[in-house]
């Protein structure tokens, strides 16, 4: 019962993942990634990692992905076009995949080798949820207490830095064309062209 469910969710996840790279608008890509994350969190719920599943939804989908969405909408990014030299890139891609995929298949076949299976899948038998949660939190705050503090610091510093970078502003020394300012120019800011012959005539 549980295996087909997991399989289905996995299929959905891969589908959404393909959508991320194949859809031609960034907003759609971000939305597909959110869907992908949701599938993953469902998987984790099934595995009994409720805390992580919630973190994924709240922290990742709720915060980071929303940030992405904001960015994409704010920057008004136009739809992307594939590489012009797609054929050469494609050949590289094929090369990579031909190496990676056999590796993967071979690894999988090795996994189904009964000698490697030690205690099969305690997985399917889900333990009581309460127990897993308390276990996780106790490990987190006893064995990994200082690690968690450091990781928190690692999270805090880049966020402050990111804010700082954005606040500092763009480098104004770079010369560039600003079409909006060009369009908004008024007549008195323009260079006036004078016919010198006319002027001379007037003065005479």
């Amino acid at each position: 019962m549980i295996v087909p469910a997991i399989a289905t969710i996995s299929m959905l996840m891969i589908l959404f993942a393909n959508a991320v790279i194949l859809l031609n608008h960034p907003v759609k890509s971000v939305l597909s990634l959110i869907a992908c994350f949701l599938c993953a969190s469902i998987l984790w719920l099934i595995f009994g990692a409720e805390y992580l599943a919630l973190v994924l939804i709240f922290l990742y989908v709720g915060a980071v992905m929303t940030l992405f969405l904001f960015m994409v909408m704010m920057m008004n990014v136009d739809s992307y076009t594939p590489d012009e030299q797609f054929t050469t890139k494609f050949s590289v891609m094929i090369l990579t995949l031909t190496i990676l995929v056999p590796c993967a298949i071979y690894g999988l076949s090795q996994l189904s080798n009964p000698s490697m299976i030690s205690t099969d899948i305690a997985s399917v038998k889900l333990s009581s949820k309460n127990e897993s949660f308390t276990l996780f939190s106790s490990v987190l705050y006893q064995d990994y207490f200082w690690v968690i503090q450091i990781v928190g610091l690692i999270l805090a510093v880049p966020i402050v830095l990111a804010a700082g970078i954005v606040k500092q502003g763009a480098n104004t020394h770079v010369k560039q064309q600003k079409s909006s300012e060009q369009l908004a120019v008024r007549s008195n800011q323009r260079l006036t062209l004078v016919d010198t012959k006319q002027v001379r005539k007037k003065s005479c």
Binding site: A49, L52, L59, Y60, A63, V64, M71, L140, V147, I154
Partner: peptide, 20 residues
Amino acid sequence: QVMALMIIVVAAAESAVALA
């Protein structure tokens, strides 16, 4: 799972800097 949590945290930091 602890490891996964840390990866999530680091990934969040990374994407924050990248977005900036």
